[in-house]
Design a protein around this nucleic acid. Structure first.
Lengths: 152, 152
DNA sequence: ATGGATGCAAACGCTTTGCATAAAT
DNA sequence: ATTTATGCAAAGCGTTTGCATCCAT
């Protein structure tokens, strides 16, 4: 893997620009999410990973920070189905997700046709658009192969 | 309103055909969902409404029955966003939902273009399609008007 | 000294479970 | 007699909250 080297300064910058205090907890969370761009994580996981780096932080703080970051528009919380919602860096790009129900892997995609229809439909129903949830669930190729090794 | 008159016999029929026992609890739940076709309800709500009819049923039984019905394909559980999932009669028709984040109203829609793109994308990613979640969230016309009565 | 951020523990809402009872075949 | 469904109460899970403390301005 080639994780872009840690960028706590960059994170601090972004936090300040977003009007947040830039506490060490905020930095730790945002920094982790930035390193793992295009990664999708549950709050527990984020917390656990940060704890591993030595940073000592309470889980409730992780939740609180996550809320702040979402509020500030730096992070997005994506509902991926029932009882499954993850946090990701908000890149500003509209996209949706594919989720493997076996291994939990998450991929992103973006489809202009879907996006257009989606907007049109909301308008049609007089819905002042506020958000969307689109996740395709299924079994990814790897997991399918693993389940039926006979027929790869 | 014109609620099609109660159809416990029809419900029992459907249950038997689906291989379920057809207990009074199962009948009550399915019947309620059938009467309210195109309605969307949380487990609590279903339970409460049934209780009102005199039928005495425990909430956990409601959940268990709901599971059975979903398993049998008679009912679908639709995740409508974070911490929001409702049960609806499974009519077999593919459709998605619009949700008003203010009043909670749920509308259904079905868009062939979206459905097609969705299938194509899943295939493209090698995802053996298993399900989808699409809900558009926003403020419905009524709630918008209520919020800004000056500018209807 | 003021306001926000934190840890901790306790509460939360929704859902599931264990177990003993009851019903149905 | 065996299986299946039910009620009840308790636990579960992920998340949120109250409160006292801590930190930074």
């Amino acid at each position: 893997m080639s994780p872009r080297s840690s960028s706590p300064i960059h994170a601090l910058d972004a936090l300040k620009r977003a009007g947040l205090a830039g506490t060490s907890a905020q930095i730790a969370v945002l920094d982790y999410l930035q390193q793992a761009e295009h990664g999708h994580f549950g709050a527990e996981e984020i917390h656990r990973r940060i704890a591993r780096t030595g940073e000592r932080m309470n889980l409730s703080t992780t939740y609180r920070v996550l809320h702040q970051l979402v509020g500030a528009g730096l992070v997005a919380n994506v509902p991926l189905g029932k009882d499954h919602s993850l946090y990701e860096l908000n890149t500003g790009k509209v996209h949706d997700h594919l989720v493997c129900v076996v291994c939990g892997r998450v991929e992103e995609f973006s489809d202009v046709t879907i996006n257009r229809r989606r907007a049109a439909i909301a308008k049609e129903f007089g819905l002042r658009f506020a958000g969307k949830t689109l996740a395709l669930q299924g079994v990814c190729a790897d997991c399918a192969a693993r389940a039926h090794p006979a027929r790869p």
